[in-house]
Simulated assay, not measured.
Amino acid sequence: MSQPWRIRPEGLEVRVRVTPKGGRDAVDGVATLSDGRPVLKVRVRAAPEDGAANEAVRRLLAKALRLPASAVGLEAGATARLKTFLIAGEGQTLANDLAVLTGPTP
Rank of each mutant, 00 (worst) to 15 (best):
V27M: 06
E90Q: 09
K83S: 07
R58F: 07
R81Y: 07
A62F: 03
T84Y: 04
V100P: 12
V30R: 07
Q92Y: 05
L67P: 09
L94G: 03
T79L: 01
D97L: 02
R66E: 09
P9T: 13
Q92T: 00
N54Y: 00
V39L: 12
K63Q: 14
A76Y: 02
A56N: 08
T84F: 01
G77F: 03
W5Q: 08
R15H: 02
L61P: 01
T93G: 15
P20V: 11
G29N: 08
R43N: 02
N54T: 11
A99Q: 12
L40K: 02
V100C: 09
A71D: 06
F85W: 06
P9Q: 05
R8C: 00
R43S: 02
L94S: 10
D28V: 14
V30G: 00
L82M: 14
T32I: 11
A62P: 00
A76H: 09
T105L: 15
L61M: 06
V27W: 04
M1L: 11
A26G: 10
D50Q: 12
L33W: 10
A53C: 04
E55V: 10
D35I: 08
G23I: 02
V42M: 08
S70K: 03
E10A: 13
Q3D: 07
L82W: 05
T102F: 13
L86N: 11
D97V: 05
E49F: 05
E75N: 07
L61I: 14
A46C: 09
L98S: 00
V44G: 03
D35A: 03
R6F: 01
A62K: 09
A99N: 14
R6G: 00
P9S: 13
L40C: 09
P104V: 07
A53L: 07
A47Q: 09
R37A: 15
L86I: 15
V42R: 01
L12K: 12
L101N: 02
R66N: 15
L86T: 15
R17M: 14
P9D: 06
L74S: 14
A80K: 10
E75F: 10
V42Q: 04
V14H: 03
V57A: 11
Q92E: 07
A88K: 14
G89T: 14
P104E: 06
K83R: 11
T84Q: 12
P68D: 09
L98M: 07
E13Q: 05
K83I: 04
K41M: 15
A80G: 13
R43F: 03
R59A: 09
K21M: 12
L65G: 08
L12S: 01
A76T: 13
V42W: 11
R45W: 02
S2L: 09
P4A: 00
P38Y: 03
Q92N: 13
V27D: 00
G73N: 05
A53I: 06
L33K: 14
R59H: 05
S70W: 06
G51D: 01
A52K: 12
L12Y: 02
E55S: 12
V18Y: 07
A26C: 11
E55R: 15
G36M: 12
V42E: 02
L33Q: 06
R43I: 14
A69N: 04
E90P: 10
W5A: 00
L40V: 10
V27E: 01
G22N: 10
A46R: 04
N96Q: 13
R37E: 09
D50S: 15
F85I: 04
N54I: 03
